[in-house]
Amino acid sequence: MKHPLINYLREELLPTIFCPGCGIGIVMKALFQAFKELNIDTLDNFVFVSGIGCSAWMPSPYIKADSIHTIHGRAIPVAIGVKLVRPNLNVIVVGGDGDIAGIGGNHLLHAARRNMDLLTIMINNQVYGMTGGQVAPTTPFGIKTPTTPYGNIDYPLDTCSVVAAAGANYVARWTVSHFMQLKNTFKKALRKRGFRYIEVISQCTSRMTNRMNISPGEYMKQILKKSINIKKLALETYDEYLNNIIVGEYTDRDRESYLELISKVVENA
């Protein structure tokens, strides 16, 4: 018997190269489940764009669709170019926290400001996993990494607050321990216009949980325990972000998207 979601995968390239216990597989399954529940049978009119890092490998080469595996940090602008020329395609950016929030952070900010018609999924494992687990812009304060041997003195970036403030239509954060919520968030985001940003807190088993001497499963329990839904907070503050994992929807609105605005420019020029 075949896996019910195998149609979304390039079966001939399996198994994946992801480390045992990696969270990327959970994100992939949640996304595929969302496709299935939305009756999206093939991904023929989907284009996935990714940059550099483990998360970039999720669509390229494993998802059976067109994919563009670009250079570090530039997945969002490449995706914008594709979307503006072929507005009827669904363009999805997948990347890690180093790629999307670090080197590509400026593009994230401006894509949100423009309410660009893209779905961006940032899988946040809180380190630069592929290069050896160095500190990332999302690494918790105080943590030791190969480049913060005396502890991290940089505070982590709350990308969801930033992207929501910049003007995106939809912003949510979940963890790989929230499978159902994550799947439902993907379903919702896939049906919306404008810039949609989903951050997924994940685990790096080779560069994080192993150093903490805990199993990936134990880490998943920990992040679940640390999660507080944003609805339960009167106001999200940065202190709360630093001490917990804030999950849930940061924003859900329906502003006119960039594509609609630029179509009017072309019409009226």
Partner: peptide
């Protein structure tokens, strides 16, 4: 379509995406 990018990095990368898409 004309876009003023947020920097030269985004501009050239948008151009690459647009060309891949057929422009």
């Amino acid at each position: 379509i004309f876009v003023q990018g947020e920097d030269e990095l985004s501009s050239i990368n948008m151009v690459i995406g647009a060309s891949i898409a057929g422009a």
